[in-house]
Simulated scan of single mutants.
Amino acid sequence: MTDSAPAPGVVDLLGVLAYAELTAFLRMAEDAALLAPSLTDRAALGDLAAMEYGHFRMLRDRLASLGADPEEAMAPFVDAIDAWHAQTKPRDWHEALVKAYVGTGVAGDFYREIARRAEPAIRGLVDEVLADESRSEFAVERVRTAIEADPRLSGRLALWARRMVGEALSQGQRLAAARPELAAMLVGDEEGEDLAEIGRLFARLTEEHGKRMAAIGLTPGP
């Protein structure tokens, strides 16, 4: 049994989120295995990776309930998301933590903005899979402790965070440009609405990014 036909752009939204969650699971599992400095950290990041996989399954199942093929829904977004991960591959444990918190966070903010125009049930699902309390606590505690122990880390990690945010926003723009129905959910399709809404969108993303950087003990920079 399937739900009623989804609104335009909803399958794209759930498809991009599903692939983002699937790759987050794979990347976090890899970082846990290769970069974690202790078994405790490896297990903690592994737990977060398992949570991301659970989110992927929720999205996959919702796509199926809408009558969409999950693989076909994810396929248009594979290249862009894979490219983002390739361009932001962490070199050490602290870069992996900042990516898990700041990089994944700004991407999540972008997807939440798209979901603002979706029906309540879809918005609720998006909010549920993007909830980041556990990831936030995990990364913030460890990065702040590391910076207190070695203040020189702050500048390097702030530059790393800004690079990831730039890459994430560029990725979002490419995705929206390639998928018109997704773009319409992001900024609306009424004449004259798009430019004003884009300005407000970037203001909101910038504000949330600043809060996240402050929480983790880094300065947002220009």
Score class of each variant (00 low, 15 high):
residue 1 M to L: 15
residue 5 A to V: 14
residue 6 P to D: 13
residue 7 A to C: 02
residue 9 G to N: 13
residue 15 G to T: 09
residue 19 Y to Q: 05
residue 21 E to C: 02
residue 24 A to T: 10
residue 28 M to V: 04
residue 31 D to L: 09
residue 32 A to Y: 00
residue 34 L to P: 04
residue 37 P to C: 15
residue 40 T to M: 09
residue 42 R to I: 02
residue 43 A to D: 07
residue 43 A to Q: 13
residue 44 A to P: 01
residue 44 A to I: 05
residue 46 G to E: 10
residue 47 D to Y: 04
residue 48 L to P: 12
residue 57 R to S: 04
residue 59 L to Q: 10
residue 61 D to S: 12
residue 61 D to W: 05
residue 61 D to A: 11
residue 63 L to D: 09
residue 65 S to F: 07
residue 68 A to P: 00
residue 71 E to Q: 08
residue 73 A to T: 08
residue 75 A to R: 14
residue 77 F to H: 11
residue 79 D to W: 03
residue 84 W to P: 01
residue 91 R to E: 15
residue 91 R to T: 13
residue 97 L to Y: 11
residue 97 L to I: 12
residue 99 K to D: 14
residue 100 A to Q: 07
residue 103 G to C: 05
residue 104 T to W: 09
residue 106 V to K: 08
residue 106 V to S: 00
residue 109 D to W: 01
residue 114 I to F: 05
residue 114 I to N: 01
residue 115 A to Y: 02
residue 115 A to K: 00
residue 117 R to K: 08
residue 118 A to E: 11
residue 124 G to N: 15
residue 126 V to M: 00
residue 126 V to Q: 05
residue 143 V to L: 12
residue 147 I to A: 13
residue 149 A to K: 07
residue 151 P to E: 11
residue 152 R to E: 15
residue 158 A to S: 15
residue 159 L to M: 11
residue 163 R to H: 15
residue 163 R to F: 14
residue 165 V to I: 06
residue 167 E to M: 06
residue 170 S to F: 09
residue 173 Q to S: 03
residue 182 L to W: 12
residue 185 M to Q: 10
residue 193 E to A: 15
residue 193 E to Y: 01
residue 196 A to G: 10
residue 200 R to G: 08
residue 202 F to C: 09
residue 209 H to D: 08
residue 209 H to A: 06
residue 210 G to C: 03
residue 211 K to L: 12
residue 212 R to K: 13
residue 219 T to M: 08
residue 222 P to F: 13
residue 222 P to V: 07
